[in-house]
Write a protein that binds this DNA or RNA. Sequence first.
DNA 1: TAGATTGTTAATCGATTAACAATC
DNA 2: TAGATTGTTAATCGATTAACAATC
Lengths: 211, 211
Amino acid sequence: MKSEISMAVIRRLPRYYRYLGELLDEGVAKISSKELSNLMKVTASQIRQDLNNFGGFGQQGYGYNVEYLYLEIGKILGLNKINNMILIGAGNLGQALANYPAFRKRGFNLIGIFDKNPKIIGLQIGGLEVLDVDKLEQFIKQNEVDIAILTIPKNGTLEIATLLTNWGIKGLWNFSPTDLFIPNVQIENVNLSQSLMTLAYQIHNKNSSNS
Amino acid sequence: MKSEISMAVIRRLPRYYRYLGELLDEGVAKISSKELSNLMKVTASQIRQDLNNFGGFGQQGYGYNVEYLYLEIGKILGLNKINNMILIGAGNLGQALANYPAFRKRGFNLIGIFDKNPKIIGLQIGGLEVLDVDKLEQFIKQNEVDIAILTIPKNGTLEIATLLTNWGIKGLWNFSPTDLFIPNVQIENVNLSQSLMTLAYQIHNKNSSNS
DNA sequence: TAGATTGTTAATCGATTAACAATC
DNA sequence: TAGATTGTTAATCGATTAACAATC
């Protein structure tokens, strides 16, 4: 039972992680919250508050060691563990995600791809053969699967999400425009249409001098 | 100079829009904030507050007319206008988006696809021929383009985003893991890696009985 | 009219920012 | 030691929820 950290903080962690990774690549050894705040266009106060939810990673009078902080945030996010993933629905978007190289390098391992369309089953995508969804339960029982990526049409989503949860999947990365309210599983929705509509609002309602 | 409405509210509008669209399809004529709040798992108070940022769409003692509210939210979001889009970067993700049917039906019209890879230029994707990025400026001068979808590698993103802004593009839908700070253009970032990392945090740090 | 439900003000809650003592 | 910068508390700000008068 951990003390509850707000999702607002959690959603900022990957961004810190990205900036620290870039600094690390540039060979920067230390950074102060002030310097990082200039880079990221947030307040130094927010950076310090956010980090102190998880412990004191800095040193007074010095700042933060870039590599140490990078690794610690990685640990907080669970990137030091291997996260095995399966993909359900090998349509256009599913195939694009299966070929996305940035995931594997962060420890996200795609180990299975499933579809129900006979024309797609058997194809090789991202080095994996697309299997029939009928084999899903068996596959999950025989492999350690943490996350399922759902790139299937809206209609089938709730049913398969429920099954996956019952079979022990811990996280669903859901690209269907459906709100899943399922206990015992963590869900992250990516709703591309909603994102695009938000952009439409902005271009029609904000004057162009805003950032 | 409109009174400023917070992004928290704006980001909820597409979700209201989706639920109202579904109710409309089911033939539901009226709904109260209480009923809608049950459906959407938010408070009725929030729904009424959100809507009243834009005007009084309901009627005391009755509730809201579903079709009217649906259309009004659509107008607020700018979905009653045609939003012409071009896509820059016809890799896996770009191709998937080009084939995404949900956009066109909301008035988002893809009218051009660009890439710099000679192997991709000339291909037909989603009914459009992929053009050389060299033709981008000319194309924008000759067509009314509102939004550019950026599905290109991180390195080239800032440069092309700046050019697009100078050429008069109003909105950038950015899929590169880069933060663009450019004036005179509205930017909506979609960062898939960040989303996935957030899910990783949740499966490793939240106990499974949480929603 | 009586009942229902909005629109809107007031209260609460949570998140962000500011300030500064602690300390390297 | 003096200067710098964190960790952390206090103040502010904004967003959410509750309450209720207005009104259909």
